[in-house]
Simulated scan of single mutants.
Amino acid sequence: MFTLAKKQQIGNYTITFPVKEGDYAETYRVKDSAGKNRFLKLINCAKLHRTQFDADGNVLEVEIAKQLDHPNIVKYRDSGETIINGRKFAYIVFDYISGETTSQFLAREGECSVYDAKTIVLGVLNGLKFLHSLHEPVIHNEITLQNVMVDVSSGATIPKIIDFGYARYLSQGSTAFNKNGLSPFYLAPEALNGVFSVKSDIFSAGAV
């Protein structure tokens, strides 16, 4: 059951339609005040694991999203907090990606050409290089076929990394890692023991 209904307002955004419902968050296609399509993630703060907050009590995913500015990563636009029916929610607004997940792309195409495979993997590695090279390096922790979108709006195939729900700062150490809900098919062996690093993201890119 989605929290927000069509045409409902949240901040400066109007809900167009719901997209996906998860354990602690919901995603929506929305329009901004200029009528542009955007993508909004609504996070139920009460359902977050303690490791999903930073040292100051802010939602970690929101704080990480604010730093995302790279052609191979979904672009952050806005964020905020709101109270709905007495419950606190955080929301993040991203550019709307006109395309599909790599998983959907593969299902539709039936097979992946060497050219497409190279384009997608290079894009993912470039996006990861940006994250890992930040002043405070960020580890994505959930690089999968579902979390790489293929943007086709420009006529070219541009892969973009999405969903930073499991992302962590490298400096947080392994205690700040909740692996519940992660796909074992993409996880580096050490990540199964709660240890994450730059290398564990590269392993996941290899699995992709």
Rank of each mutant, 00 (worst) to 15 (best):
I143N: 07
F164S: 07
T101G: 05
Y169N: 02
Y186F: 04
I120Q: 09
N178F: 06
S153Q: 07
V121W: 09
V121A: 10
Y166F: 12
R108M: 13
D95N: 11
I143M: 03
G165E: 00
C112V: 15
D163R: 01
T82G: 05
Q146S: 06
V93T: 04
F164K: 05
V114D: 01
G86N: 10
S153W: 07
L187Y: 10
H132G: 06
A107G: 09
I97Q: 02
N180F: 08
L122F: 11
Y96L: 09
K129A: 15
N147S: 05
D116N: 12
A156I: 09
A167E: 00
I143P: 11
E111G: 07
F177R: 03
L145K: 14
R168H: 15
G123R: 09
Y169S: 03
G165C: 10
F105C: 09
Y169C: 05
P137K: 09
L187S: 08
I92G: 02
L131A: 13
A90E: 10
N126M: 05
T119K: 06
F164I: 01
S153M: 06
Y166P: 13
E100D: 12
Y166Q: 04
G110D: 08
R87C: 11
G110K: 04
Y91I: 04
R108P: 08
S171A: 03
Y169V: 11
S153G: 01
I143G: 03
Q146L: 04
S183P: 06
G173K: 07
V152M: 02
F164M: 09
L170W: 05
I158C: 06
L131F: 05
Q104K: 15
T157A: 07
K179N: 14
F94R: 00
Y96V: 08
G110M: 02
V121K: 13
E136Y: 13
Q172L: 01
Q172T: 09
A117I: 04
K118D: 08
G181W: 02
T157Y: 15
F164C: 03
G123I: 13
S98C: 15
T175N: 14
V148A: 02
L170S: 06
P159K: 11
Y115P: 03
L106A: 13
Y169F: 13
R108V: 04
V152N: 04
F130W: 01
S113P: 12
V138D: 01
N141H: 09
H132D: 11
Y91P: 05
K179R: 12
V150A: 00
K129L: 08
N141L: 00
S103A: 12
G127E: 01
I92Q: 02
T102I: 11
T102A: 11
K129G: 14
Y186K: 01
E190V: 00
D151R: 07
L145T: 14
G155D: 00
K88S: 09
K179E: 03
T82A: 03
F94M: 00
S98N: 15
M149S: 10
F177W: 14
